[in-house]
């Protein structure tokens, strides 16, 4: 009798676990939430940025470099995703790792002209965040905690990622 109850219990749980497992789009991993390290950088126009100022919103934090091939491939999808999401409450932070202003400008003017990038001139902020590699994307919750990480470059402009991001900011 007990065994039968256990089987029913697992049968009931199975669809729930399946749904949870399939809620996340490919390559997005849920982390044990931890406080996002500080980001105090200047953008390409010299304006200061502090991640703390974005508390109360989900923030898409993305590290990239122009020499990294997957970064070049991913960036247009980020721009398109941003075109969909910018008026829906999501914030975006693009952090260039250790390149100069001219390189950043000529790259983004082609690949993501509408996003204002931050310059991690010495690469020290990137170092503290410890990405697995470049590109790297983190999703920081409204309390300033990192909840998700994307593995490598993602096609952010596809339905599964857009739906996921929309669910987050609801």
């Amino acid at each position: 009798m007990n065994n039968r109850l256990l089987i029913y219990f697992f049968l009931l749980l199975a669809p729930v676990s399946y749904l949870q497992a399939t809620t996340l789009p490919e390559g997005i991993i849920k982390l044990t939430a931890y406080a996002a390290p500080a980001i105090n950088l200047k953008d390409i126009d010299g304006e200061p940025f502090n991640l703390n100022d974005d508390k109360g919103h989900w923030v898409f934090v993305h590290f990239w470099a122009s020499w990294c091939r997957p970064c070049r491939k991913e960036m247009p999808a980020i721009q398109k995703m941003w075109n969909h999401m910018k008026n829906q409450g999501l914030k975006i932070v693009l952090i260039n790792t250790a390149e100069d202003e001219d390189t950043i400008f000529s790259f983004l003017s082609v690949y993501a002209p509408d996003i204002r990038p931050l310059m991690d001139i010495n690469g020290q902020v990137t170092e503290v965040w410890k990405p697995r590699g470049l590109p790297a994307t983190y999703l920081v919750d409204p309390q300033g905690k990192i909840q998700y990480q994307a593995l490598g470059g993602r096609d952010w402009n596809t339905t599964s990622y857009l739906t996921f991001l929309r669910k987050l900011i609801k």
Partner: peptide, 11 residues
Amino acid sequence: PLAHQSIFRWT
């Protein structure tokens, strides 16, 4: 320079 050390590390 730190920037070049950083780029090198990321490669």
